[in-house]
Design a protein around this nucleic acid. Sequence first.
RNA 1: GCCCAGAUGGUGGAAUUGGUAGACACGAGGGACUUAAAAUCCCUUGGCCAGUGAUGGCCGUACGGGUUCGAUUCCCGUUCCGGGCACCA
Length: 974
Amino acid sequence: MAKEYNFREIEKKWHQLWTERQTYKVTEDESRKKFYVLNMFPYPSGAGLHVGHPLGYIASDIYARYKRLQGFNVLNPMGYDAYGLPAEQYAIKTGQHPEKTTFANIDRYREQLDKIGFSFDWDREVRTCTPDYYKWTQWAFQKMFNSYFDEELQKAQPIEKLIEKFKKEGTWPADEKAQNDLLMQYRLAFLGETMVNWCPKLGTVLANDEVVNGVSERGGYPVEQKKMRQWCLRVSAYSQRLLDGLDTIDWSESIKETQRNWIGRSEGAEIEIKTLSNSPLKGENSLPLREGWDGSFTIFTTRADTMFGVTFFVLAPESELVDKVTTPEQRKAVDEYIKYVKSRTERERMIDHTVTGVFSGAYGINPITGDKCPIYIAEYVLAGYGTGAIMAVPAHDSRDYAFAKHFGLPIIPLVEGADVSEESYDAKEGIVMNSPISPDKSVEYDGESLCLNGLTIKEAIAETKRFVKAHNLGCVKVNYRLRDAIFSRQRYWGEPFPVYYKNGIPTMIPEECLPLELPQVDKFLPTETGEPPLGNAQKWAWDEKTNTVVDCSSIDNQTVFPIELYTMPGFAGSSAYYLRYMDPHNDKALVSPEAAAYWQNVDLYVGGSEHATGHLIYSRFWNKFLFDLGVSKKEEPFQKLINQGMIQGWSSFVYRLRGTNKFVSFDLLEVQYDNEAKKNRYFYQGTEADPVYADISMVSGNVLNVEKIREWTPEFRDGEFILNGNGQYIVNQAIEKMSKSKYNVVNPDDICENYGADTLRLYEMFLGPIEQSKPWDVAGIDGCFRFLKKFWALAQNILNNPNTQNAPSAEELKSLHKLIKKVTSDIETFSYNTSIPAFMVAVNELSQLKCSSRTILEPMVILIAPFAPHIAEELWEQIQMVNGKWVNGKCPSVFDAHWPVFDEKYLVETSVKLGVQFNGKVRFDMLFPADATPEQMVEMATSAPEAQKHLEGMQIVKTIAIPKRIVNIVVKPV
RNA sequence: GCCCAGAUGGUGGAAUUGGUAGACACGAGGGACUUAAAAUCCCUUGGCCAGUGAUGGCCGUACGGGUUCGAUUCCCGUUCCGGGCACCA
């Protein structure tokens, strides 16, 4: 009895059975090899899941199921990144506790995820906002606080070791406050007075990766620089290890490159610039740096070779040297300049690169030439990088060049053939000259003076470094652009810091008292006195005597102290969640040593590339720290990374005539390109028409359903719709990121309802390469649906054939093994989009061959199982019923079967390329005479000695002589 | 400005990594079944040219060169689109 493919029934049945049978429950099993698949866990937003979300989940689910079929013990967990700004802002607006909305959103996500049929082990679910989870976020923070980075060992060490060292050296201060200040400079989690990105509109500081083009990533509000006392993580200490680790992991080159840029290693030299009196140089016309200050400062350069071209020095306006160097005569001008710089926002500084600066009145002495050079202060030099001071070489640095031109400073070219009359020559290629201009322009140290003339730039850099080092003028130095991460936020909905302030000194709450739970507040806004939202909490003080949280009113300076009001940023909870999945219910440890030893690290991580400089750096840092502690067993958390592309939406626009309630069909509009605004403007009979978003569900093709849109919102109800000649209203369409506000979100639920989860899964993979972004377009979904129906029909034909035990024919076996080969290698390389066509071809071939063999069907069902698990389980059950494999009314799951093994011998009708067999043909890559006819070529090819070897026992089916010099011979076993 | 990744029919995209370009799907056109619709099935579908026809010829993977018997694939240059970094000395 051939049954119809009823996906609704099948999918419902298997969702139930999978839950009942705990099909996807995973436990540590030493007898099997582990495989850890992970998706970046989602932030549960109010908009629910859209068709873009599952793309990565489906891809990883296919891999997870495939690995399981290969006999691996697969961990494939899922959870929620539950702390975040939207829930908090919603809470401010409505007064609803963020936990309530977050949990409601999570339930909705879960419901949607369940429909798609993932193999997640839900017993291991984590939510970053639950105390049993954030206990370990707080714990890790405390460990970082109590650790420092040992430069020699290149790893984190307990802070006690550092104290011991100080004591031994005799540099350990007696005063408790001084001890605290000293250790703060070393702790991996530390309180720092740093310039931060302050966003007044959000009322919080932001990390560097949360600021894009000078505005906040979320909301696009202006961000300013502000000096604040903040918790920071010393990420920069791990710069070199973060960089080196990239070479050991299997990530895309572009994302590694992004991280390398972000870490920004540059090798250079630090050179000390001295005054006359403490300099070994004694010249007649040299002056001290400044009267009354006999100091020196250090500059950083990657172009040590250009020392002979230095004509001035520049300090960053924020540098503390500015005050020391400025002469009384220049004081006023400098103060004014500093005031101007402070008035500029980060964004202005970023966009506007006009040359500004001021002379400090002081001079520095070039240790190589002995020249006296003016010291300027200019905003183009950044305080946070290198030493905040540079030597300026206008001939070979475009920024120095612009500055020199503006202030009329000399420019000395140092590279042969470089014309610096119009612009600087920045390239690191060429032969050095003018270094020195004349022998007496190079200062002698211990009888040696530097000469670089005739060397290449690379040689000159090395030579200068040697010289500087040999004569103690400075040192070779590696700098990193990577900054320490600012780790506190002035928000409510985040992990509280397990810290209280005892006489102003931050003190950790005892480890055994963790977690420190987020207190209840009645308002989620900052307090009237400008304190963060936690300032609203009544019960937010720590009693040392009882080790409990007590009411703020009992703060008495004896045993009760105020608790930190800041909370942790979003990336805190997402930095080690992959470790927690290994052992999610353990209340004694983040992860037990046994579980960590078994699961090691994530073998396959799938997520968006937008996290390249955020989460993917922070969690690598966090993991390296835990690795130093021995908690994590691998130095890198994510061995292989796949970045799924974004699925974009089709936004639809209707056009409203300005000042009216008339909407005009798009094809009736005249287009004008506005050069200034760089966009199109539309007109109807001289009146401008403005685009208005229309919901995607009201549009089919590009035709608007006018009735539907009238029902949608009041603004359309009474609208007048001006239709085109065909009586249709045409909309304009654009591809944009899917977003609630653009009304272009396509929900996977509808697809599941109309086509089933298996079709959705197949189609999302069929759409194109997983890493590529593409617009969502349902046009092709019917193809995948039809394929599943054909697959079903083929299976029913086989199962209902009385002779299903028939031995398969050679052609059927060939079809099958071609498929095994293709699908196996596709899954290994994540080219799912080409597997699905292979299935289609195989099913067509087998249908045409009127295949009736279960020997073929069984492996086919296993092959499709990772892609379309529901239909596979259903067919497997039917096969096993026919096979009589049901035990006690229970059928084994297809996922307990074994992945079929490809056997080359079934592809025998194969071919040879100079002795190498492949795909259906024998190819002779020989040199034939240019004038040989095809017949002659075939004759020559088949009689060649190498050919005999391959033609033996074969029957020639067909020969193809490709003009020019190739002969293909299609053969078949006799 | 610097770095990275791309460009193939009407559309999404294949091509065993140097070997007959355009798999598979969508769309379009034609046909079968049907009272009709849905569903299903079959044929055609890169462009141009010749032929009643089977078929044959030429052009064609953004553009211009090169290496090679042979290039979508490798090398050099140009254009365009996307991503990252950006006063980082």
